[in-house]
């Protein structure tokens, strides 16, 4: 009798389960904080949903978080943003755009020696509030700035 274990349903399920366990253990080890790309957060269509998917509870607007960007973005396809946090133990910085189809644009988990100062460029469909969200010691802080867009970046 020839029975390859992979064609046997139960054996396959057992092995697949074992493999995924091994894989998840392996991928968890070198990570800083988050295990995998947070699909739920990136799919969120409201700020409340995005915050929930990111585990954000009652974020506070803080003067120690700075969102550096120009007031007017001539080209919504390329809007430079810089977020700086002066809050000790800042471990995560995110950029969210309230009026984009999906709020969350980018999330950065920082290592212990990484300065809480991140610059990136994002797309904006229209004039909107942009939020720099900072996580420090498990608490969340924000800086909000309205950026006017004269030419949208999500058109086609």
């Amino acid at each position: 009798m020839i029975e390859h274990s992979w064609t046997d349903r139960r054996g396959f399920i057992r092995k697949a389960g074992l493999l995924s366990l091994v894989a998840s253990t392996f991928t968890l080890l070198p990570r800083l904080a988050l295990a995998a790309w947070n699909k739920a957060a990136f799919d969120s269509k409201t700020l409340a949903d995005a915050y929930q998917a990111m585990g954000v509870d009652a974020p506070k607007e803080s003067a120690d978080v700075q969102l550096l960007a120009s007031d007017i973005a001539e080209n919504g396809a390329v809007v430079p943003l810089q977020a700086v946090s002066k809050i000790p133990n800042t471990t995560q910085i995110s950029f969210l755009v309230e009026k984009n189809p999906n709020m969350l644009a980018a999330l950065f988990d920082l290592g212990p020696d990484t300065v809480a100062d991140v610059t990136a460029r994002i797309k904006m469909g229209q004039t909107s509030n942009v939020i720099a969200l900072v996580k420090a010691d498990g608490k969340f802080y924000t800086a909000t700035k309205e950026i006017k867009v004269t030419l949208g970046g999500c058109g086609g």
Partner: peptide, 19 residues
């Protein structure tokens, strides 16, 4: 590891990143 980023599609084309 110094930084791990998760991005959505609203990061600009030809992404720039500084840290």
């Amino acid at each position: 590891v110094a930084m791990e980023a998760q991005w959505g599609p609203s990061v600009s084309k030809n992404p720039y990143l500084a840290f």
